[in-house]
Amino acid sequence: MKHVLAILVENKSGVLARVAGLFSRRGFNIDSITVGETTEPGISRMTITLEGDEAVVEQVMKQLNKLINVLKVSNLSQEPAVMRELMLIKVRAEPHTRSDIQQIVETFRGKVVDVSLNSMIIEVTGNDEKLEAIVLLLQHYGIREIVRTGNIALLRGAKVTRENGEARRSKG
């Protein structure tokens, strides 16, 4: 099963190496990892997607919690959450296929962000399924290059992931 972990970390040098190193050392596979700032200065948020059964994910979370710079680990796949990934696709686009491609992009609510004589770059965001679907369609025209940001996720509703204690509901 696929799991998405949200990890709040102190933004100190080496923290990414600590987290990534833990995965490789203990033989856990990461599908994707993203890092970014949060509203709190000095605290970053990582989103890690990984494949594994319950026991593996439990062990991953426990080991992550042991890292001193890790403030909070939560498994977002156990609750309703919004998950998004951004992808840029460079696709072969001859003058006669351009409008077809354009139509596909519109259907997926993507954007064309660059056009050249025989290629286009398409920007599209969504969950795994959606991204895989557009890739499948565009393969028909010839995909030259893909880059993906990896998943980010937020819990649905007013609930937030905070550094102290469990995820809690805000009063509003």
Partner: peptide, 14 residues
């Protein structure tokens, strides 16, 4: 040495 000892220390600092 902080990189080398990352997986064999409880924590380390530079």
């Amino acid at each position: 040495i902080t990189g080398i000892t990352l997986p064999i220390t409880k924590h380390n600092y530079l």
